[in-house]
């Protein structure tokens, strides 16, 4: 097992290197001169100086090498636009997105566990159908549209929650809810099916016959769901990051998604590079976790195949 992890980590590192180089290449193709974005009205001399100060005048391979060198030291350079170290920007923005994602996870759990259990207990009944309807609905709603509807109702009309920004748990509520929607659908389905499995097992029926309270059985069943749910969650994280961009945009929530979008639109090369490294690393670790959980769940896929 350990060998596999090490092997995957090495591959992961390789992937990060390739991805970084690809980004560099893509950015060269980018129309739009970052020097001009910073000082659009400057004359040619000033532009040349600005390009020099950002190292944009050296040839491609030297730029790439310099980037790797600096990255190893932990220095990702300075953002063109914010004039702050990329490192500090990433460290301050990333946790906020984490709070958002964790908030979404929490909400999804709070909503889907009761619904999933209820649905499993009352299989094929009216309640079951309603829960399934809710599940499919939450999967079908575009989450950014839902976010806009939330703003319209809860923030503007009712004034219960702030419509944007960052600061307290209230700022987190609506965005997390919007983000939680896709999670809710998959969670409900998994919880329902796993609970059904547990309830179907013979020894459970036997225990019921002997009078052991249902709640106890439900709890036992739920315990089994945690790992699969976590796996599901990690699988969805990649997609959620994409959704988080739009949600952060709508709520003006200062997380890594919004930062990424603005960095690209502003041609902030060092910030883009830093973000690419950060996000790739996160994705790779996530994928590793997902793959490991797959083997945990389905031993048919031989381990060497990893």
């Amino acid at each position: 097992m350990k060998q596999i992890i090490i092997k995957r980590l090495i591959i992961g590192l390789f992937v990060i290197l390739v991805v970084t180089m690809l980004t560099f290449a893509l950015l060269q193709l980018f129309p739009g001169d970052p020097a001009k974005m910073i000082a659009p009205w400057a004359g040619e001399e000033t532009l040349i100086e600005i390009r020099k100060s950002f190292g944009l005048d050296s040839p491609f391979h030297i730029q790439v090498l310099k980037f790797y060198q600096d990255a190893l030291k932990g220095d990702f350079g300075e953002s063109f636009f914010y004039r702050e170290e990329v490192r500090t920007l990433l460290f301050s923005y990333f946790p906020r997105t984490i709070y958002l994602t964790l908030g979404a996870l929490l909400m999804a759990l709070v909503i889907s566990i009761p619904l999933g259990v209820l649905s499993a207990l009352n299989r094929d009944s009216f309640i079951d159908r309603i829960v399934l309807f809710i599940s499919i609905t939450s999967q079908s709603l575009p989450n950014f549209w839902l976010a806009l509807m939330f703003i319209l109702f809860f923030a503007v009309k009712l004034g219960l929650f702030p419509a944007g920004g960052y600061g307290s748990w209230q700022h987190l509520f609506l965005p997390s809810f919007a983000l939680a929607c896709t999670l809710i659908a998959t969670f409900i389905r998994s919880i329902r099916s796993m609970m059904i499995d547990v309830l179907e097992q013979d020894f459970i029926k036997a225990s019921e016959a002997r009078g052991i309270p249902r709640l106890y059985i439900i709890k036992k069943g739920l315990r089994n769901t945690f790992v699969p749910l976590l796996t599901l969650f990690t699988m969805q994280l990649g997609y959620m990051l994409g959704g988080a961009v739009v949600i952060e945009f709508i709520f003006n929530y200062p997380g890594i998604g919004l930062l990424a979008m603005q960095a690209v639109l502003r041609r902030d090369y060092p910030l883009i590079q830093g973000l690419v490294v950060l996000i790739s690393t996160v994705f790779i670790i996530l994928n590793l976790l997902v793959d490991l959980s797959y083997t945990y769940l389905d031993p048919r896929i031989r381990k060497e195949e990893l």
Binding site: I16, V19, G238, L241, V245, A260, V264, I272, V276, N287
Partner: peptide, 11 residues
């Protein structure tokens, strides 16, 4: 899979 989709798309 390692490449952040958003950034790729926006670029």
């Amino acid at each position: 899979l390692g490449f952040p989709f958003i950034i790729l798309v926006v670029i």
